[in-house]
Design a protein around this nucleic acid. Structure first.
Length: 137
DNA sequence: GCCAACGTTGGC
DNA sequence: GCCAACGTTGGC
């Protein structure tokens, strides 16, 4: 099983929107690198939900429930997306500032390539963030 | 709201 | 195939 992080602007589609919907397509990605990562995702992979532009924090966990398929909002079938389901929220959201200040997280793609909206997370990073977020003792 | 960083497009 | 112009993302 692999770990990932995906971003969305809460003004457009935030964590609460996903919770309300339950399951949703992660549509709208129009970047090849981000798309390729979604193609690599498998059902049951776990994904951090990050609020970009406003919030700037990891707020919850989602689970991949359907592998990459054509994005229904794209007019070109080359753009694909996965389906995700809301999992647990983080009791203490983990802010970008906190991540940047943590040597153990300094190599996260979130820090190194701030413009990539779909990115892999290592198992070590995943565990560390769960701890910071209050989900793991 | 600004703008730096980055990706894409298209003329040559 | 280069690179200038343009568009988008996202932190600040």
């Amino acid at each position: 099983m692999a770990y990932w992080l995906m971003k969305s602007e809460p003004d457009v589609f935030g964590w609460d929107d996903l919770v309300a919907k339950g399951t949703s397509e992660w549509d709208g990605v129009r970047n090849y690198q981000a798309r390729n990562f979604m193609r690599d995702m498998k059902v049951e992979d776990e994904v951090f939900f990050y609020h970009s532009r406003t919030g700037l924090e990891i707020v919850g966990i989602m689970e991949v429930v359907a592998p990459a398929h054509p994005d229904s909002t794209a007019d070109d079938p080359k753009w694909v997306c996965v389906d995700v389901r809301a999992g647990q929220p983080l009791p203490r959201p983990v802010a970008l500032d906190r991540i940047k200040a943590d040597p153990a997280l300094a190599d996260m793609v979130l820090v190194k390539n701030s413009r990539l909206s779909v990115q892999p997370v290592t198992a070590a990073e995943w565990r560390h963030i769960l701890t910071l977020g209050g989900l793991q003792s």
